[in-house]
């Protein structure tokens, strides 16, 4: 019962935050509200007992990405441009997509259903054998780092590639070359 009330309150606040973000045109407020949105999502993950995911959401979603978005605002503009065209078509697209997603959830197994496909294939093996095979109390860590080590290596490579990509775009090589040329000219 308590969990239902907590979930209800968190989801209501999530929806209110989403509407507040849509209504705002000062980007500083939008970024701060997006941070609030992430924090509320992290709380929902805690309510779902997914503490590892909640931790990541709080650190990345509410922390780092807020700082980076503020950095972007400092580089670009403080306010959103007013819409030049009517919003009817975007609204229609969003409504149709949303309806499609809700229709899709009707086929999903209930939350925590022991017969759900994801709970009958490998999950029982991980849960029953991980203490014997890996001997690490946090099953999430043993799945992430050992059973699915290849996956996590791929994720690390993705983080690496994303970082390199952003560096190439933002601190671009051409910029540096121009500075070198200027130094040469000075010399």
């Amino acid at each position: 019962m308590t969990e239902t009330i907590v979930n209800f309150i968190l989801f209501s606040m999530l929806v209110i935050t989403a509407f507040a973000i849509v209504r705002q045109d000062r980007l500083f407020t939008v970024v701060m509200l997006a941070s609030v949105f992430s924090l509320l999502t992290a709380m929902l993950f805690v309510a779902l007992d997914a503490v590892d995911v909640a931790f990541t959401e709080a650190a990345v979603g509410a922390g780092i990405s807020t700082v980076l978005m503020l950095g972007t605002i400092a580089l670009t503009a403080r306010g959103a441009k007013p819409a030049s065209r009517p919003n009817t078509l975007p609204l229609l697209v969003v409504l149709v997509t949303g309806a499609g997603l809700v229709y899709g959830t009707l086929d999903m197994p209930n939350f925590g259903d022991p017969e759900a496909p994801s709970n009958v294939h490998l999950a029982p093996h991980y849960l029953t054998n991980s203490i014997e095979e890996i001997d690490v109390p946090n099953v999430v860590t043993s799945i992430l780092a050992s059973y699915r080590g290849f996956d996590t290596l791929g994720e690390t490579a993705v983080v690496f590639a994303a970082g390199i990509g952003v560096l190439m775009i933002l601190s671009g090589l051409r910029h540096r070359r121009r500075e070198d040329e200027e130094e040469e000219e000075d010399a």
Binding site: G71, A74, F160, G163, V166, L167, L170, S171
Partner: peptide, 19 residues
């Protein structure tokens, strides 16, 4: 190590251009 590096590097790249 990679995550620390990427996050700090992206911040440096943003802040280096920010007035």
């Amino acid at each position: 190590i990679t995550v620390t590096g990427v996050m700090v590097a992206i911040y440096y790249a943003f802040a280096g251009r920010t007035p």
